[in-house]
């Protein structure tokens, strides 16, 4: 090939090239998070926590202090960081296996304690890194390597909706679900991130932004088709929008 990739680092990110598969939306989400932290002037005082999943190497990409947590434990690690460094901006970056399965307790309890941290939750309805097993978020009927006949309700339950679930946790301050399948939604997602980090800066408590994401490799689709699949199948089950906003209630009061 005679094309050459000229890599220009995005705001808030290192020069390391992503290892993500072609068409995977992990990259866009990284870009957005880096951009918002940079624009808000927070990147230098930020501490990120990478989880275990395809984004395990996120600690190489975000241009700030980073921790790498054990599988599912990122919110606990973030809690530790934030408690001793309350002035820094602390965020976790977690997949749906990491957060909604093995780490659900950590996520719920971080919210429950009202930890002043931000969770970037990337929901691609599958375990990417380990090769496409069923996640708690896998849709009914969706085939994965551990639901070879499609997820069945009787066997594996219905997919877990994290924003809806956490909206019942009193300690959570702000919860929003966004998507990055087109420029309009990318802009909206960026606004959500700004809001979340502003809340953290204002010491107003726990924030979580859920991203509808794709996994073309394990869904067995071309990148473009996987975006369409996410829009047609995931968004109806995981509607976009704000699930909780305690800052509003504060204003109203």
């Amino acid at each position: 090939m005679n094309t050459k990739t000229v890599y220009r680092p995005q705001a808030g990110l290192t020069e390391r090239e992503y290892h993500y598969c072609p068409g995977c939306t992990h990259g866009i989400i990284h870009n957005l998070v880096g951009e918002v932290l940079k624009e808000r002037g927070l990147i230098e005082s930020s501490v990120g926590v990478a989880s275990v999943g395809c984004s395990v190497m996120a600690y190489e990409y975000f241009d700030c202090d980073m921790h790498q947590a054990a599988h599912g434990r990122a919110p606990a690690v973030a809690t530790g960081i934030k408690r001793v460094r309350p002035e820094s901006t602390v965020f976790t970056y977690q997949g749906d296996g990491d957060l909604a399965s093995i780490g659900l307790a950590e996520a719920v309890h971080a919210a429950h304690r009202g930890e002043n941290i931000t969770i970037i939750f990337v929901n691609n309805a599958i375990y990417g890194m380990t090769g496409g097993q069923m996640a708690p978020t896998t849709l009914l009927g969706q085939q994965t390597t551990t639901s070879p006949h499609g997820r069945e309700k009787a066997q594996a339950g219905e997919p877990l909706r994290v924003c809806e679930l956490l909206s019942n946790v009193p300690g959570a301050t702000y919860l929003e679900r966004v998507s990055v399948h087109d420029p309009k939604h990318v802009r909206k997602a960026k606004k959500a991130l700004q809001k979340a980090f502003d809340i953290q800066s204002g010491k107003q408590g726990f924030t979580l932004i859920e991203f509808i994401s794709t996994c073309p490799i394990n869904w067995g689709m071309e990148p473009k088709d996987s975006l369409d699949w996410a829009v047609e199948n995931m968004i109806p089950y995981y509607p976009l929008g704000v699930y909780k906003d305690m800052t509003k209630e504060d204003d109203d009061a």
Binding site: H71, S101, I102, T130, Q133, T145, S147, P148
Partner: peptide
């Protein structure tokens, strides 16, 4: 991974139990 993947098909097919736990 191929171990649970195999069992996710073959345990139910043999009337046995297969559960993917959350951790």
């Amino acid at each position: 991974n191929e171990l649970p993947e195999y069992l996710s098909h073959h345990m139910p097919a043999n009337d046995r139990v297969f559960v993917q736990a959350e951790s």
